[in-house]
Nucleic acid binder design. Structure first.
Lengths: 336, 336
DNA sequence: TTGTACGCGTTATCAT
DNA sequence: ATGATAACGCGTACAA
């Protein structure tokens, strides 16, 4: 029942320093070590992590900041998967995670995070073009890795997927199956991922010599704007609809079917994210899969490099995406 | 650029103790206070939380443990909402959250959590009948609140919803609309919520004098088992299917429609959870709404009571649920 | 290899 | 109201 390292020292007849060495893998004679470990075994001692942090200057805890719209957080598995990936990578290093969601003002959150001795570094989701929280973190001394990135983050470490390339590939796919009037439902204009995907769509359309006048409607990543956005696009006579995420594609599918149109014969449909339900839709949805867990894990690994060598230059990682072609674009196959 | 409280003291010409009082709201003369605060303003000092924890014995951080199947965590918004509720209640107290998911062994996780000086208390999800992690937490000195509970947790503080009552109410609703061959797709047998809901179903059926021989099939809370479970039940000629959660109801709906049966005319369908998609199904799904965010927030509030008065007797809270009646059981209304 | 002694930055106790 | 001063528990130069 030893509560402190001093008590352990007394019980095992050595000095506090020796016990500390046993605990942290210093050089101790085999004999002494086994003696201390014997005591350790029968005493269920637990080190005081606050004291350890204070003395060593490291807490072995990293912060995770996901300061986003609660509604989005609720329904989009993206964030759960991101957490899982981070948690997994943290477990590999026996490190802990402090989590901040958007329940306090960004100023308050920032202040807490920057408190000394709390976290060794932080991973923050950067999905807004201007985010004072991200700016504050980057301006601070605290090692910081972004998940996602803004154009201005060229000097920061980040992990992202190449949304431009992915959206370009999807648009190219739609063109390759003979569609030319390809409508696009985008996300919030200030959302970085939305902007990237839109850019990829534009880029592919332009390369194919197709017009994007009147083919783009604005959504907000939620299903209802997929419903209304698709209605608007169908009125303009599109033969394909590419949605910036699966949630909106779900809404678009509703609208298409409500009008008695066939997918993909009349209108091809594509999403982005490959959420769980995408494969279960009727017809199964063509979409883009991004390794969200892997993003989270990579962000943590990236952060640890920064923590262990703070002078290291920023490392920027673009993870690959995968085009998942299903019957909502290539049709013909057996319907489930 | 004062980094420590001592530097602040020198800069403002007072002692370290006085600065500490200003910071923590001790009694200081207005004059002295304003002097210190002036220095404070131009120096962006941030207290060292590790030192504070060590000296005060409190970290103002609580642990949250959700040691569950990653796959479930991915797709079920339950956990996101729970986190949101907790985060919100923590923000009210300016407290932080450490999060542990199931990436390490329960022994390792338990060991870390029980380390001194890390967290002031812990909220843990208890969804398994026997969980060494929960047992270890309850056996420890650390203030602990469960979300959910096992039968044996009568001496612990917990927050839960009355799943028995809710399932009873739903079953009674199905009976009230004239169904008598009511099939039930349950969750994993060792899952507490699943067991509660099943008990509620049985209870209502028994009270109505209806047989449950051959009306219960086992699922696992995921959509595929809803598909297969419903097939099995339909073969037995049921006129209603009650699923232990919405995800399985989604699968059941697929099966029912694939057989060309009408909902609710031929088969009434009910779920549990009221997930986002439930209202969007065709027909909209009758289900049970439980205030998940509220559960999380209440768990945190409960925990703080325990932290502030460790001798306080355990407080057990059962939050109410709400029957959400939609067209999958009462039909007739306008289809969307 | 082991022990001594100091420092980490803060809160809290006790005088004044 | 304010100021010394002692904890808080651990890591780690430095000395032995």
């Amino acid at each position: 029942m030893a509560r402190t390292i001093d008590e352990l020292a007394v019980l095992s007849g050595v000095s506090r320093a020796t016990v500390s060495r046993v605990l942290n893998g210093g050089s101790v004679s085999a004999k002494t070590r086994s003696r201390v470990e014997a005591v350790l075994g029968e005493t269920n001692y637990r080190p005081n992590l606050a004291a350890r942090s204070l003395a060593s200057g490291r807490s072995n805890v990293v912060g995770v900041v996901m300061h986003i719209d609660p509604h989005l957080l609720f329904q989009d598995p993206y964030f759960s998967q991101l957490l899982q990936g981070m948690s997994s990578a943290l477990a590999d290093r026996s490190a802990g995670m402090m989590l901040w969601l958007g329940n306090r003002s960004k100023e308050d959150t920032l202040g807490t995070i920057l408190s000394m001795g709390l976290v060794d570094g932080v991973v923050v989701t950067a999905n807004s073009l201007d985010d004072p929280l991200v700016d504050g973190l980057l301006a601070s001394e605290l090692p910081t890795v972004l998940v996602g990135h803004r154009k201005a983050d060229r000097t920061a470490s980040y992990v992202d997927v190449d949304g431009v390339h992915a959206a370009d590939a999807m648009t190219t796919h739609l063109i390759s199956i003979g569609r030319s009037r390809i409508g696009y439902i985008t996300g919030m204009p200030r959302n970085v991922a939305a902007a990237d995907r839109l850019a990829g769509y534009r880029q592919a359309m332009k390369r194919a010599g197709l017009s994007v006048a009147d083919t783009i409607v604005e959504g907000d990543f939620n299903t209802p704007t997929g419903v209304t956005g698709a209605a608007s696009l169908l009125d303009r006579g599109v033969d394909a609809i590419f949605c910036a995420n699966d949630a909106m594609a779900l809404g678009a599918l509703e609208t298409i079917r409500a009008r008695g149109l066939r997918v993909p014969e009349d209108v091809a449909l594509a999403g982005f994210d490959d959420l769980e339900f995408a494969a279960r839709l009727d017809p199964p949805l063509t979409t883009v899969r991004q390794g969200v867990r892997e993003q989270g894990a990579e962000a943590v690994r990236n952060l640890f490099e920064l923590i262990e060598d703070r002078s290291r230059s920023p490392r920027r990682v673009l993870l690959p995406t995968e085009l998942v072609i299903r019957q909502s674009t290539v049709g013909g196959g057996p319907r489930t």
